[in-house]
Design a protein around this nucleic acid. Structure first.
Lengths: 130, 130
DNA sequence: TCTTACGTTTACGTTAACGTAAACCAATGC
DNA sequence: GCATTGGTTTACGTTAACGTAAACGTAAGA
């Protein structure tokens, strides 16, 4: 019943990465699995961290950047100064993300145009045949 | 009056990259500036290509991926088979971009939460003082 | 008992995307 | 005339994010 635990290969399969990758993330301090003797035991929290890392990767973040974003979630920021610094960090990251969304929208728009041209060209080709 | 041309350092300054970077893109076949004797002369088209490359970089695309996307724009795809292949490529890329948008939105949502927590914590701190 | 599956550490190899430095040429201002 | 500015090629160096391989431990199953 308690919290579910995971082996390294379970997580590797779920997220479609190699075990090497997961151990590498640990090496870089991005996850901290417990140990049962020698073998690594991953908690649900570890699993979420890996998920967030991979989400970051998909939008081109480095592991360090993902680590920073993840660190924003944990409440180890006690005093007001740290909170204000964190808020600024969050705002900076937000701006980057918004720029990325704009870049993606621009690119999607470009793809729309390409697609239209393709379809038009195909239709013209068919007309000639018919 | 004619089309504007650019030196390598003009473009480097405009896009905030080094000249080394621009020459590297040429080395990889991403731009093909003309020459005035030894020196490179960049056209408006070259400038756009560099712009698109950097846009791709911002959302985590490799140079090769950017090159592929850029190649979608040029109409060197003559026959129907090539057009259909291109349409599939466009669709695949579109799916990737939509996933990226979702990832960004998820991350923005997370940042919203973090920000709320920060502000709440700061307000509580002020109350104690007042 | 032996092999098969899964885990471990250690360490060298690899690719992408430039950085950095050397050594050189060409026009320009003083 | 000569230093400065901006361009060139060539080539080795660097960082991130793993891949790959060796060499080993261990528990389960035929």
């Amino acid at each position: 019943m308690g919290k579910p635990n995971y082996t390294i290969s379970e997580l590797a399969k779920e997220f479609d990465v190699t075990t090497r990758t997961i151990r590498f993330y640990e090496e870089k301090g991005l996850v901290h699995p417990q140990r049962n003797g020698q073998v690594r035991v991953y908690t649900a929290a570890d699993r979420v961290r890996i998920k967030l890392i991979l989400r970051g990767k998909r939008i081109g973040m480095t592991l360090q950047e993902s680590a920073e974003v993840i660190d924003m979630y944990d409440p180890d920021h006690n005093n007001a100064d740290q909170l204000r610094t964190l808020i600024e960090t969050v705002e900076a990251r937000r701006l980057l993300l918004l720029q990325q969304k704009k870049d993606i929208d621009d690119m999607l728009f470009g793809l729309d145009e390409v697609q239209s041209l393709c379809h038009t060209a195909l239709r013209l080709g068919e007309e000639i045949i018919s």
